[in-house]
Design a protein around this nucleic acid. Structure first.
Lengths: 341, 341
DNA sequence: TTGTATGCGTTATCAT
DNA sequence: ATGATAACGCATACAA
C-alpha cells in the first residue's frame, strides 16, 4: 500500500540497501563496484516496485533541496512574469526548482519566505524588490542568513549581497532630453508605486533633469497606487487639469496603458495631443495602438543572469561579491511625437 | 558555524531534545506537559541561538512538505498569471508554498514535475493544461500517482482526477449568436495554440454554431502558434484577404491584441470595419483602446477554487471525486459592433 | 513534568 | 563486490 523504499527494493533484489544506493548513484570512488548481474536485478526490482527516491530524505541527508526561492512583487505585472520566466528557464536547465512567491505588495509574505530560507527549505534566494527592507524582523532574518552564508541575489542594491543592477536613472535623463527635444515643455509623471521608494530610480532623475532645464512643475507629478485602476484615475485627473502636460512618463507599461485609456476618454489623441512613455517594455507594448514608446531592461535575460549569479554563489560560497549592471535603453515607438502647437 | 539544532537548544537550556520539541509544538495529548519556567528557558535559548526548525527533517518525519506543485502553460500570458495568483493567495493562507513550473509548451518539464510528486517533493499538484497527456512516460507516472492516491487537481477533464471545469463551449455559441445578431455573416477565427487540442472548447462550438446558421467558411479559420508575433502574422494574413471576415474570434486576449494591431496596420477600424472578440478577459482588456470584448472565466477565483479542491483532497484522500464547473460569460465592450454595410 | 529510545529514507564509511 | 552501521534533525510513544 505504501510507497516502496530502498529496503523494499533491496529485499526484492536480494541485496542490501547500500547496493541499491550504489546502483542509483553510479560509480562512487572512480570505480564501479557493482556486478552487471546484480545491477540488473536491482534495476528490475526498482522497475517492478515503481520505486522513486524520496526527495525529502535526500534533502535531509545531502543538505540540499535543488530548489531556489524567488520573490517577485506582483504576478499581475507582465514585467515580473517575464523576469520570472527567465529565472525559471535557467533554473530548470540547471536542475533546480522554483518556490515562487509574489509578495502582492504585502511585506509579511516576504518575511515568511525569508524564514523558510533560514529553515533550509531551499538552497538559494532571488529577491526582486526592496519591500522587505522596512521590516525589523526581516532585517534580523536576513542578517542571520548572511552570517550563515546562504546564497542570496537581489535585483537592486540594498543588502550588500550579490546583486544585479538594472536601474533606470541614466536612461530616464535621456527620455526627458528626448521629450524636450520634441518641443515638450510640460512633462508629467504618473507615479504608481507600492511604496514611495520603489520608483525613485525614475522619479529622481526626472526631477533633476527637468530642474536643469528649468521646466520642473511639481504639480504635474501625481502619485498613486500600483494597480491599473489607480493609474487610470491618477492619469485622468492629471490630464483633465487646465494646464495639463503635453507628455507624460508613467512608472511602468501597465499603468501607461491605463494612462492612454484615460487620454482617450478625455478625447486626447496619442501622440498628437499627448506623448506617453512607459517603462519595462512588456511584450504587449509593441502591439498596442499606438505602439508604446518604452524603456527596456530586458527582463527575461535579466532573470537568466540572476540565476547564473546565484548558481555561481551556490557552487562556490567564497566568491567575492558579484555585481552585474545591465543596460536599459529607450525604445521609441508611436506613442511619442512632437509637442502640439 | 553551522546552524543550531534542537540538541544545541536543549543543551543551552539544560533540558532534553524532546522538551524542546514539546515547547515548539505546544500540547501533545491535550495536556501541556511543560512548566512555564522551563518553557521560558527553552524559548530564551531558541532566541539566543537563532534556532529555526529544519524543514527538511520535519518533512521527512511528518511526511508532508507544506508545498504544492503548480504547472501552468505560459508565464507570459497574464491569464495564467492571474490564475496562479489565485492559487498562491489561497495556498499561502493555508500555510502552503508553491513550486511553480511553466511548461513553456515543453512536455519533458511536465513529466519531471509529475515525478517530483511521486518523490514527495510536494504534497499535491495542480495542472492547468493537457499537454502531458501525450507522453507514454507521463501516462505511466500519472497511473502510479493515481494508484497511490496522491492529490492532483486538473483544470480540464483528461485524467479522471479531481477537476475544475471552466470550458468555453457554451459561451462560444452565445458569442457567435451575438455576432450574427449584429449582422455579421463572415466570421473568422484566429486559432493560436501550442497543440491543436488545446483550444477545441472554442473552435468546435464556433464551427457547430456557424454550420447551424449555414455560415461556416473554413478558410476564415487560421491556425498559428501561441505567441503574439505568430498571432499577428496569422491575423494580418486573414484580414488582408479579399473576402476578409467582418468579425473575428481570437483564441485569447493576448492574441486578440495582436489581431487588433494587425487590423490597424491594414487600415481597418475596430469595431467599424472589424469586430474582435477575445478570451480570458485579462485585466488589460478593459483598458485597451478600444476596450476589448472578451469572454471571462474569472481566472483568479478559479485559482483559489483549485487550491481549495486540492486541499480538501489532501485533508481527506478518501473523498469521492470532486468536480467543479465554473461559469464563463461574454463581456461586451467596445471592440464589437454592427457589421459594416 | 521530563528524559530515553526509536524510526523516517538516504547516503557515507567502514568492514568483510 | 557487497553488507552492516552510523549519521542527518526531528517527533513521539513510553518510561521514569
Amino acid at each position: 500500500m505504501n510507497r516502496p523504499t530502498q529496503v523494499d527494493v533491496a529485499q526484492r533484489a536480494g541485496v542490501s540497501r547500500a547496493t541499491v544506493s550504489y546502483v542509483l548513484n553510479g560509480l562512487t570512488a572512480g570505480r564501479v563496484p557493482i556486478s552487471d548481474e546484480t545491477r540488473q536485478r536491482v534495476l528490475e526490482a526498482i522497475e517492478a516496485l515503481g520505486y522513486e527516491p524520496d526527495a525529502r530524505a535526500q534533502a535531509l541527508r545531502s543538505g540540499s533541496t535543488n530548489t531556489i526561492g524567488l520573490i517577485i512583487p506582483d504576478l499581475n505585472n507582465p514585467h515580473f512574469c517575464e523576469y520570472a520566466s527567465g529565472v525559471e528557464d535557467a533554473a530548470r536547465t540547471a536542475g533546480y526548482h522554483i518556490l515562487l512567491s509574489s509578495t502582492s505588495l504585502n511585506e509579511k509574505n516576504a518575511v515568511n519566505i525569508f524564514k523558510d530560507l533560514a529553515r533550509r527549505r531551499f538552497d538559494g534566494l532571488i529577491i526582486t524588490n526592496s519591500l522587505i527592507l522596512e521590516s525589523v524582523e526581516a532585517q534580523a532574518t536576513l542578517e542571520q542568513i548572511r552570517k550563515r552564508g546562504l546564497p542570496v541575489v537581489e535585483v537592486g542594491d540594498c543588502y550588500g549581497v550579490d546583486a544585479i543592477f538594472a536601474d533606470y536613472r541614466q536612461v530616464t535623463k535621456e527620455v526627458v532630453a528626448y521629450l524636450l527635444s520634441l518641443g515638450h515643455r510640460r512633462l508629467g509623471f504618473v507615479y504608481g508605486v507600492g511604496s514611495h521608494e520603489l520608483g525613485l530610480d525614475r522619479l529622481e532623475p526626472f526631477q533633476e533633469q527637468l530642474a536643469a532645464a528649468a521646466a520642473c512643475e511639481p504639480e504635474l507629478i501625481v502619485e498613486c497606487g500600483p494597480t491599473m485602476e489607480e493609474g487610470y484615475r491618477a492619469a485622468r485627473q492629471l490630464l483633465a487639469s487646465p494646464n495639463r502636460p503635453t507628455a507624460i512618463l508613467v512608472i511602468n507599461d501597465l499603468l501607461a496603458i491605463s494612462a492612454m485609456r484615460a487620454a482617450a476618454d478625455l478625447g486626447l489623441r496619442v501622440p498628437a495631443d499627448l506623448s506617453v512613455v512607459g517603462y519595462d517594455d512588456i511584450p504587449i507594448a509593441s502591439f498596442l495602438v499606438p505602439r508604446l514608446t518604452s524603456v527596456s531592461k530586458d527582463a527575461y535575460s535579466s532573470g537568466r543572469k540572476s540565476f547564473e549569479i546565484l548558481q555561481a554563489r551556490m557552487d562556490n560560497p567564497d566568491l567575492p561579491r558579484q555585481v552585474l549592471r545591465l543596460p536599459a535603453k529607450l525604445i521609441v515607438r508611436e506613442s511619442t511625437g512632437p509637442a502640439p502647437a
